[in-house]
C-alpha cells in the first residue's frame, strides 16, 4: 500500500467549505484560496502541483466515486473532453465570475440591493438569508453569496459527472485545471515546439 501524506486528506476541505457556507456565508471568501493557489503555482512554478496533489475537490470526487462506489465508472463522452468544450466552459465560467464581480460592485455603489440568495446553475435563486450575518458590509456579503453560488454550482456539476462517468470526470473540464494547463503550456512553449519537431514526448 502506498504511503499516505497529509495532503491525501485534503478532500475533507470540500464538504467543510460547503457546509460552513450553510451556516455563515462569509466563509465563502475562503474559496478565493482555491482560485489563487492553482494560478500562483502555475504562473510562478510552471506546474499543476495543485491539481496533482492538493486539489480537495478532485480528491473528494475520488473518495465518493471510488471508495464510496458512487460512480458508474463509464467513459467520459468525447465532446466533454474536446478542447472547444473545455475552453468554452472556461470562458463561460470566467464571464459568470466577471458578472458576479459586477453585481458586487453594484451593491458597493448602492445601485442594487443585497440579494440574500444563492444562485444555482446561474439561474435558480435559492433563499439563503439564514446564513447572512447582518453586521457585515453589504458588498462583502454580496461577493460571498456570488462566490458561494459558483462553488456550489460547480460542485453539483462535478457530483453529477462523477456519478454518470468517472470519479474525477470534473477534472476533465474544470475551469481552473484548463486555465492552469494553458498557463503551463505557454510557459513550456519552447520545449513543446521541440517536442512537435522531433515528434517525441520528453522522457521521464
Amino acid at each position: 500500500m502506498k504511503k499516505r501524506h497529509w495532503y491525501d486528506y485534503l478532500w475533507i476541505v470540500t464538504p467543510l467549505y460547503l457546509g460552513l457556507g450553510c451556516f455563515n456565508i462569509l466563509f465563502a471568501w475562503l474559496g478565493l484560496l482555491f482560485f489563487c493557489l492553482p494560478l500562483l503555482i502555475a504562473i510562478f512554478g510552471g506546474s499543476k502541483a495543485y491539481c496533482n496533489r492538493y486539489c480537495d475537490r478532485g480528491q473528494f470526487f475520488g473518495v465518493l466515486g471510488k471508495t464510496c462506489k458512487l460512480s458508474r465508472k463509464k467513459p467520459v463522452p468525447r465532446w466533454l473532453k474536446h478542447p472547444i468544450f473545455r475552453y468554452g466552459f472556461l470562458i463561460f465560467f470566467l464571464l459568470m465570475f466577471a458578472n458576479m464581480l459586477y453585481v458586487t460592485w453594484l451593491v458597493y455603489a448602492g445601485a442594487r440591493e443585497l440579494g440574500q440568495t444563492v444562485t444555482l446553475f446561474w439561474t435558480l435563486q435559492v433563499p439563503w438569508g439564514w446564513a447572512y450575518p447582518t453586521a457585515v458590509t453589504p458588498w462583502v456579503a454580496q461577493f460571498a453569496f456570488g462566490f458561494y453560488s459558483l462553488m456550489l454550482t460547480s460542485a453539483l456539476i462535478g457530483l453529477l459527472v462523477m456519478v454518470l462517468f468517472q470519479p474525477r470526470a470534473w477534472c476533465v473540464f474544470c475551469p481552473m485545471g484548463t486555465m492552469t494547463q494553458l498557463i503551463c503550456r505557454v510557459r513550456a512553449r519552447k520545449q513543446l515546439r521541440a517536442v512537435r519537431e522531433t515528434g517525441r514526448m520528453p522522457e521521464v
Binding site: 496533482n52 514526448m201 520528453p202 521521464v204
Partner: peptide
C-alpha cells in the same frame, strides 16, 4: 501507479517511464 512510473511534465501532460 504502484511503481511511480508516471509524472506530470511541466503541468502540460503526464509522461510514463
Amino acid at each position: 501507479c504502484p511503481v511511480h512510473a508516471v509524472t506530470v511534465w511541466r503541468g502540460v501532460t503526464a509522461v510514463v517511464d
